[in-house]
Simulated scan of single mutants.
Amino acid sequence: MIAQHPDRDQILLENVLSALGNPLRLRIVRVLAHGGEQSCGSILDGVSKSTLTHHWRVLRDSGVIWQRPSGRENLLSLRREDLDARFPGLLDALLNAVESGSPAAAPAGASATATRAPAAT
């Protein structure tokens, strides 16, 4: 049985950001954003079922995804309408940052080195 999904007004920013702070969950959201509703088993390969189950629960409980049973599988979809209503532009900003290779994805210290003044000679 699938746990209750939070209502739109119960979706909290800190829970959404915490859920999307994990690179694997962010990949899942990216797949759902581009591919629409997907079965649990078709989203990512090479990840154990127990690990994926944990990530589905975190995303569902935070209000990021819908999860519904369909036969022997569960189908997942992004709660884009709810997220856009609660936090306008947040989902698009996160997805655009991931797809464009945001500075946050750069190696540690890369931005600091680029802005450092040259050493005196």
Rank of each mutant, 00 (worst) to 15 (best):
L83D: 02
S102Q: 02
G63N: 07
N15E: 08
G89M: 13
A85N: 08
G21N: 14
G109Y: 00
T51L: 14
A119S: 12
T115F: 15
R25H: 10
I65G: 04
W66S: 04
V64E: 07
L26H: 10
N15V: 01
L78V: 10
V29G: 05
L52W: 02
S50N: 14
S48T: 11
S62Y: 12
R30D: 09
A33T: 08
R79A: 14
T51V: 13
L90N: 05
V58D: 07
R79D: 09
P118Q: 06
P69I: 12
K49C: 04
S77R: 06
V58A: 07
S18I: 05
L17H: 01
G36V: 11
L52M: 15
D61M: 03
L90C: 06
R86A: 01
L12A: 09
N22G: 10
V64G: 00
Q10K: 13
T113M: 13
D7E: 09
L17M: 15
Q38F: 10
R79S: 10
S111A: 13
T113Y: 00
S111F: 11
G21I: 12
T113Q: 05
H34A: 15
A104V: 06
S48D: 14
P118M: 05
S70V: 06
L52Q: 08
A120N: 00
L24R: 15
D92T: 10
A33M: 07
L95R: 07
V98P: 01
S102A: 14
G109T: 01
R79W: 13
L17Y: 08
G46V: 13
A85V: 03
G101I: 05
L76Q: 01
E37A: 15
E81V: 05
R57H: 15
F87K: 09
N96V: 09
L95Y: 07
I43E: 01
A120K: 00
A105N: 00
D9V: 02
Q67K: 07
S77N: 00
K49T: 04
A108C: 08
G46S: 09
